[in-house]
Write a protein that binds this DNA or RNA. Structure first.
Lengths: 195, 195
DNA sequence: GTCTATAATTTGATAGAC
DNA sequence: GTCTATCAAATTATAGAC
């Protein structure tokens, strides 16, 4: 295996996706151009179209890749069977990493907010991100004896809270906002188990 | 008082703000143009600049107006003293109206998600929206004997959940998602009061 | 694969007539 | 107040050379 100069994106194609993702997560889909991406990876705008015919194709590939990575990092939802608190803690950590480590919003919080102004293949993959996350969370939260409706309700609250928390934290430029939401969730979850 | 053709926007200036708000809440700030707004209100793009020198001025005025209207509709936060459940129910209703009646996201959910791609006066007013909402909610939730930190924690969770719930509902095209979050909140709140 | 050149369109904004 | 005319810049994309 050769030593590469870019540890995080080994091919130009991936460098493009990496740069585009960073820009979308910072400014939104309609605030970056193929030129911006080209500059960021050191090629000309026309060359970007060699890898992706249209801008929408970039957005679509970015979202697909983001979703796969995110779900993959969560790991097997089955291991939390009957331990909703741990499942939620694990999930909160994934979002905290995105906000604190990357200093950026969740890609799909941004795309979801702009959904009426997106090409169809981008909004479609945004929807899939949310569906897969609700599926993972519902499975991870649900224990024996807990109804599927109840688990889905908790999962939806967790996902919505965290996406909103990221937006609030960024807008107010205060990571503490995210932590307040995380703490509020950890209080709410065990209680909801009881009834 | 004369009968007007437009019950919701009596002057051209307000028509512009109304149209711009609708577009931002649907597509995002960077996906509408002064021409789009001009078309919507039946004038030429150049005439829009008579009312607002720059596009950023439109965005800023839209956000200021939205914030004032939203806080105004909530009414006096003092009347919920010691009744957090009722305060939150009232607040949830305000968001539900925006989503179900307007069929649109909260303006500041959209702007907050795009915050890195906004002119400074627009991101500034977005921040103010969130600050004023947290202030209102904290005051409405807090009863005698409840610490300010605790009320602020609940307020942050409520605001984040609802902003996130709108994004999820729109992306998944399912109002039930919002209702699941609303129900989850109403379970979480009374419990949090106890300790 | 990457480039230059170029095209068609859109965008935010201004000048000045009416 | 609203218009026409106009502009410079940006944007998405294509054609074709190297």
């Amino acid at each position: 295996m050769p030593v590469t100069a870019e540890p995080t994106a080994s091919t130009k194609r991936e460098e493009i996706l990496e740069a585009a993702e960073a820009m979308i997560r910072t400014r939104g889909y309609n605030a970056f151009s193929t030129r911006d991406v080209a500059d960021a990876v050191g090629i000309k705008a026309a060359s970007v179209h060699y890898y992706f015919p249209t801008k929408a194709d970039i957005g679509s590939a970015v979202t697909e890749r983001y979703t796969a990575r995110f779900i993959d990092e969560l790991g097997d939802s089955g291991r939390f069977e009957g331990k909703p608190k741990e499942a939620v803690a694990r999930y909160v950590d994934a979002f905290r990493r995105a906000l604190v480590h990357d200093r950026k919003l969740c890609l799909c919080a941004v795309l979801g907010a702009e959904v009426g102004g997106l090409p169809e293949n981008v909004s479609g993959h945004t929807r899939i991100f949310f569906e897969r996350n609700l599926n993972w969370l519902t499975a991870a939260i649900r224990g024996k004896g807990m109804s599927k409706e109840k688990a889905l309700g908790m999962a939806t609250l967790v996902l919505a809270s965290l996406e909103g928390a990221m937006i609030l934290s960024k807008s107010l430029n205060d990571d503490e906002v995210f932590e307040r939401v995380a703490e509020g969730l950890s209080r709410a979850i065990p209680v909801a188990e009881l009834d």
